[in-house]
Design a protein around this nucleic acid. Structure first.
Lengths: 199, 199
DNA sequence: TAGGATTGACTGGCTAGCCAATCAAGATGG
DNA sequence: CCATCTTGATTGGCTAGCCAGTCAATCCTA
């Protein structure tokens, strides 16, 4: 088989893992689930990935890369980019997206017990946080945001607040949480940041 | 054994569950772990609780009641109470507290799949959120906070931000996260809320 | 001695990983 | 041009381990 087969197969396994995760959640995810979605045998998964952990590490990488690309693709002036970033936490494209974030939450909860999971999340956190801080930075440079704003500090609150809102919304089954926090965040944080807001 | 024995035994089992959770985390928690901490046999646990789930539901109740009591015990003027509440997310009393929150995060991640877990978390969220909103409310009444503040909206951001900061700190192994978000929250939110801050 | 408390062995189900056998397809060579 | 060999892909069954839950027997204690 040609050189393409290798990566095509891995891509297919990643997609199968995605579907299996959405259907079963992380805790109930078995190699058999993934194999069923893959349409091939469980043994074959072990042929391509030494262990379940290897497969999952690869999957996290696959998933986080997607998120990072999505964020990097946001365009426009800094204040609009920031708003669009926040909005990413609110839009819930139906059940699939919800199921994914549910599984991802379980997976993140395992990170403290798994160095490789944790390192990937930490790496991704640094990238996303820097991206948000850059938006703020650029806003200060272009004169949209007040000059006495600390980009990293602001990036942290925004991230923590929206991520926390998503988590709380998911765990208590209240899907209004992210939107409510977004509104409050805009009212009590972002609006005060704009140049022209009273100091 | 007298009527006391029943609840004393249950209390002992709750404490054993607490220790077992801290030691093993939620995902690796077995009835045997709990029994070992309990100092009695696994069969006895099933004598007192029909199933592992029953036991865990009771434990969540036990734990959340503790949190709620702790928050209710905060005293002083509203702005100080709010600051003290936020500080609760920052202070990490050594490894035990960290291990507890680690396990609790895993447990919360299971709530979407377990109605009884979810309902308890939702109930607790309502109580805690109301408590925070009350602080803001009282601050408005006593003239410490600006009158155009929405108590519930503010409670949600504060909760989401600090809870999110804890989660992100735990999952990526960065224990500076909660303190950083607290500082940013105070700078960009609370300070602007005080009467006397420019509007 | 009666009844609750407690034990420890046992079962049944589930899962990751392993392995030997099979298959498909291309390379080799006479 | 066919037979053989090689190699990677794929299967399905097997195993060992783990865990929740059960149960009959035993131990207290009032």
């Amino acid at each position: 088989m040609g050189g393409e087969g290798q990566s095509e197969t891995r891509e297919a396994i990643m997609e199968a893992t995605y579907r299996a995760l959405c259907d079963h959640g992380y805790a109930s995810l078995t190699m058999q689930n993934i194999a069923d979605e893959f349409g091939k045998s469980k043994g074959l998964l072990h042929y391509h990935f030494d262990s379940k952990e290897e497969l999952l590490v690869a999957f996290i990488d696959y998933l986080l890369a997607g998120f990072e690309d999505d964020i990097a693709s946001i365009e426009g002036p800094p204040d609009e980019r920031l708003a669009a970033f926040i909005e990413r936490f609110v839009v819930a494209n139906g059940d699939e997206r919800r199921a994914l974030h549910l599984a991802l939450l379980e997976l993140r909860a395992q990170a403290p017990f798994n160095d490789r999971f944790r390192d990937q999340l930490a790496r991704s956190d640094a990238i996303v946080r820097a991206a948000v801080a850059d938006m703020v930075d650029e806003g200060i440079t272009t004169g949209v945001f007040r000059a006495d704003t600390d980009p990293d500090a602001l990036a942290r609150v925004v991230l923590a607040a929206m991520d926390g809102a998503r988590m709380r919304g998911l765990t208590i089954g209240d899907d209004t949480y992210p939107a409510a926090v977004r509104d409050a965040l805009i009212t009590y944080v972002l609006d005060d940041l704009l140049v022209g807001a009273a100091e």
